[in-house]
Simulated scan of single mutants.
Amino acid sequence: MGFEANGGFLLGFEAQGLAPLMTRDGLLPIVAPLAAARAEGRTLADLVAALPACHTAADRVQGIDRDRAADFLARLDPDAFFADTGEIVGIDRTDGLRVSLTDGRVVHLRASGNAPEFRIYAQAADPDAAEALVATYRDRVAARML
């Protein structure tokens, strides 16, 4: 599954009878928690209250050629690029570069699929931490690509 800043949701695999669909599906983020709450016999409010805090932030660097962005991501050494941010526990290159850190923070770097932009997404336990990650990596990407 993938996050889209515009509220979309990507599903690229078969999930309980749903055929793979590599397009945005705005209903899945609504239906999935409702189905989970019902399956657990809980209210939606109780289900959400039990989840860990997670805040997201997103930004972009404009004027970036997609081929150049793809080359940048292919050559990027995550250990060096994220060295001062925290210990990496997971790397996923399915759609750009998604780095998971030991403290639960995530940074996702990718070329836009529909504009000459480079997207930076982050998630963290509080909104300020998510915004700080986005600002840091927006500036690093801009410094190397502009």
Rank of each mutant, 00 (worst) to 15 (best):
D92N: 14
R138Y: 07
H55L: 03
A57E: 14
L28Y: 03
G41T: 02
A45V: 09
R110C: 02
G90W: 12
T43S: 13
A50N: 00
A39C: 06
P116M: 04
D79Q: 13
A122G: 03
G63N: 11
H55M: 02
A74E: 11
I30E: 05
D103S: 03
I30Y: 05
G41F: 02
D71Q: 14
L109H: 14
A70T: 07
R42C: 01
F81W: 13
Q62S: 15
L51P: 06
D46H: 02
R75L: 13
L34D: 01
A35F: 05
M22I: 08
T136C: 03
F3K: 06
V107T: 09
L18T: 03
I64P: 01
A122E: 04
L28M: 07
G86N: 02
L10W: 11
Q16P: 02
V31D: 00
G113Y: 13
L47S: 04
Q123D: 15
T56V: 14
R144D: 14
A132H: 10
F9A: 03
D103C: 08
G17W: 12
G17E: 11
I64T: 01
L18I: 06
H55G: 03
G90C: 09
R24C: 01
D128F: 12
A70I: 04
D103I: 14
G63C: 11
A129H: 08
E14N: 11
T94F: 12
Q123I: 00
H55N: 12
D95M: 13
G113N: 14
L97A: 06
G96H: 06
Y137M: 03
A57F: 09
A50W: 08
I120Y: 01
D95Y: 06
S112T: 08
D139R: 07
L21C: 11
H55S: 10
D65M: 05
A132S: 13
R75G: 13
A122P: 02
A80N: 10
A132F: 05
D126V: 15
D65Q: 12
G41K: 03
A124G: 05
R105M: 10
A35Q: 08
S112H: 07
M145N: 14
F118E: 00
A39N: 07
F9D: 02
A142T: 09
A129R: 15
L51H: 00
G17P: 06
A80L: 15
F13Y: 11
A129N: 06
T43N: 05
N6F: 12
A32W: 05
R42V: 01
Q62K: 15
V107F: 02
R119K: 15
A111D: 01
G2Q: 14
L27R: 00
L51Q: 07
R93W: 13
D126G: 12
T136R: 11
L21V: 12
P116L: 00
L97C: 10
L73Y: 06
T102E: 05
P127H: 15
P20F: 10
D65T: 04
I64N: 01
P52N: 08
G8R: 00
I88A: 12
I64F: 01
A124Y: 12
T85L: 08
A49S: 05
M145R: 13
A74Y: 08
T23L: 06
G2V: 00
G104S: 07
A80P: 09
T23I: 08
R98D: 00
V106Y: 09
A125P: 12
N6D: 14
D46T: 02
N114D: 05
